[in-house]
């Protein structure tokens, strides 16, 4: 290697022009996609769908009632799933073999049976048990208790609790053993260590898949239509059975689902930020900035 001092020796160095790389592939693929989208739009435009009716169905009282039912069922079932899942996860990692094996069997059962089948079993429980209760304390007719909502809540909530238990367990396992030993070393009991040291840190790992599960839950509520709970899809079907505009009502329901999922994704973003204390992500971005960023990335935030 030699170093040219560049003082007078040799000719004056002319900088050579730089030719940027031409990305022909990008242009070609973009063109292909534009053609494809235009073709799809053309086909959809000539489809036998009365698009101008969609906004009407979108705000139909029946549709709004279905929307309300979907949201309530999803929220309550998810909350139940988180609560039960937390208890099962704690049992699963317990040193007590009775607790840990029971939890494993619980997860095995409620994760193993398809959720649609679980819904059907709960809904048809009256066929097996006419009355339910505790002998000598109380008893009720199964048919009065097992409304479509209750059956839906049991089916979706219990199934979800098995998944939540695994998510929360993964969160617990992500915590460095040293954190637990340090907590024990200052005299914390196992319960307090869980509450004050493990759980708060595990939230970082637990929140993203839980948001994912809630988004799934919003859509899974549509399964409850088979046991005649009037959620969004059942509402759409009810409207269509009067006016036979099936595609139009389904489109309106689809838009509602997309809206719900979008809102849930934004909520998840904020939750993740809220539990990021003590880490690099805990940057203090303005709420509006965060919302703009969330919206900007939303269509691609596929999970």
């Amino acid at each position: 290697m030699s170093v040219d001092s560049g003082t007078g020796t040799g000719q004056r160095h002319q900088p050579l022009p730089i030719v940027p790389l031409r990305h022909w592939g990008r242009w070609l693929s973009a063109a292909a996609i534009v053609v494809f989208v235009l073709a799809v739009l053309f086909v959809l435009g000539h489809a036998d769908i009365a698009y101008h009716d969609v906004p009407t169905f979108f705000l139909f009282p029946v549709m709004l009632e279905g929307l309300w039912h979907t949201v309530v069922l999803a929220v309550v079932a998810q909350a139940a799933g988180i609560a039960i899942g937390l208890a099962v996860a704690i049992m699963r990692r317990s040193a007590n073999p009775v607790a840990s094996v029971s939890a494993a069997v619980y997860i095995w059962v409620f994760r193993g049976v398809p959720v649609l089948l679980q819904l059907l079993i709960w809904y048809n429980l009256a066929l097996a048990f006419k009355v339910i209760g505790i002998p000598g304390l109380f008893s009720v007719s199964t048919n009065t208790v097992m409304s479509p909502f209750v059956a839906g809540l049991l089916g979706l909530g219990l199934n979800e609790s098995a998944y939540m238990a695994e998510i929360i367990r993964a969160g617990f396992n992500s915590i460095d053993k040293g954190q637990i030993e340090a907590a024990h070393a200052i005299g914390m009991t196992p319960a307090r260590t869980l509450r004050r040291i493990i759980l708060p840190q595990a939230m970082r790992v637990i929140i993203p898949p839980t948001g994912n599960d809630f988004i799934n839950m919003l859509k899974e509520t549509s399964l409850v239509s088979v046991i005649s709970y009037v959620e969004l899809i059942q509402a759409a079907n009810n409207i269509a059975s009067h006016n036979l505009e099936v595609m139009e009502t389904l489109l309106a329901a689809a838009i509602w689902y997309m809206l719900l999922v979008t809102i849930a994704s934004i909520g998840q973003h904020y939750l993740e930020r809220a539990v990021a204390g003590g880490t690099k992500e805990a940057g203090r971005a303005q709420p509006l900035q965060a919302a703009r960023k969330a919206l900007a990335t939303m269509p691609f935030a596929g999970r």
Partner: peptide
């Protein structure tokens, strides 16, 4: 009994 660890083990949160 206090304890100080090799890897500090401060509560990260």
């Amino acid at each position: 009994i206090g304890m100080v660890f090799q890897r500090f083990n401060l509560f990260a949160h």
